[in-house]
């Protein structure tokens, strides 16, 4: 508090300029990010404006380095502050920001991660009806994503979270949930078949997710034509780095 009154506006602005220059050079140094938050918190201008400018700044930095987890963390702090100061939630704007990042690069796991955080919040605040619409849209989005790049693990980690999510399970009519899962299942089978025909090899991530889907479908009383045991046996050969995990799962299933 004392500092705030002793130092003039010029000091605080030049401190922001100084830390920005440092961040451009050392974007992975914890201390600089932390100091910058301290500067913003103590800035003579306590209006929302400096925080809004900061959101523009961090978007620029994330354009340069889209996986910088300091930047993503920082962004969440800035957004929370803007929400507090304005009393308006920015959940949908931020969700759109993750879509934009994922569309730019489907392997941007930081953006997928952020999407799970935001969707969980949105699910918690929405009415059932709008959640149902969002869940349908999301099934379409992930289907599109896995057809875009079936090699990358980011989208598959997201899918395995999404299909098991409690709100997803409980919002939809059981028959509708089952239908969407089965549709997803046949799409994964299709991608795997395409890979097999194209390269002579099955897609490891398709096999891994089919095992998850098999469990989820079984839980709601639906048997699939895909045999979990067969998938695991294939993975033992096709993904030897992780063969002991598959052996473990085989034993668990017995």
């Amino acid at each position: 508090m004392q500092l705030k009154n002793e130092l003039d506006l010029l000091f605080w602005s030049s401190e922001l300029l100084f830390t920005l220059a440092q961040l451009r050079q050392f974007p992975k140094v914890y201390w600089i990010w932390n100091h910058r938050i301290w500067v913003l918190e103590n800035h003579l201008d306590s209006s929302v404006n400096i925080w809004k400018e900061e959101l523009v700044m961090v978007s620029k930095l994330l354009k340069i380095d889209a996986r910088n987890f300091h930047g993503w963390l920082y962004r969440r702090i800035i957004v929370r502050k803007i929400e507090q100061l304005t009393g308006e939630k920015k959940l949908f704007e931020e969700l759109a920001y993750t879509t934009e990042n994922i569309n730019n690069n489907i392997s941007n796991f930081s953006a997928w991660h952020q999407r799970t955080v935001l969707l969980s919040k949105i699910f918690g605040e929405n009415e059932n009806e709008s959640n149902a619409k969002m869940i349908h849209d999301e099934f379409a989005y992930i289907t599109n994503a896995m057809f875009t790049d079936a090699e990358d693990q980011s989208v598959w980690f997201y899918i395995k979270w999404f299909i098991k999510n409690k709100v997803v399970r409980e919002t939809l009519e059981p028959s509708e949930y089952a239908r969407l899962l089965q549709e997803l299942h046949s799409n994964v089978v299709m991608i795997n078949q395409d890979d097999l025909e194209f390269s002579g090899k099955e897609n490891n991530w398709c096999l891994k997710i089919l095992i998850v889907l098999d469990d989820v479908l079984k839980n709601i009383g639906i048997e699939t034509c895909i045999e979990k045991k067969k998938c695991l046996e294939q993975l033992i050969n096709a993904d030897p780095l992780r063969k002991n995990r598959y052996l473990c799962l085989l034993n668990d299933g017995q």
């Binding site: 987890f69 991660h113 979270w161």
Partner: peptide, 16 residues
């Protein structure tokens, strides 16, 4: 603890 089975540096932060 995160959705993917990892942990982040604070609640809500990406797994590392």
């Amino acid at each position: 603890y995160n959705f993917d089975g990892g942990f982040g540096l604070c609640p809500g932060a990406e797994s590392h």
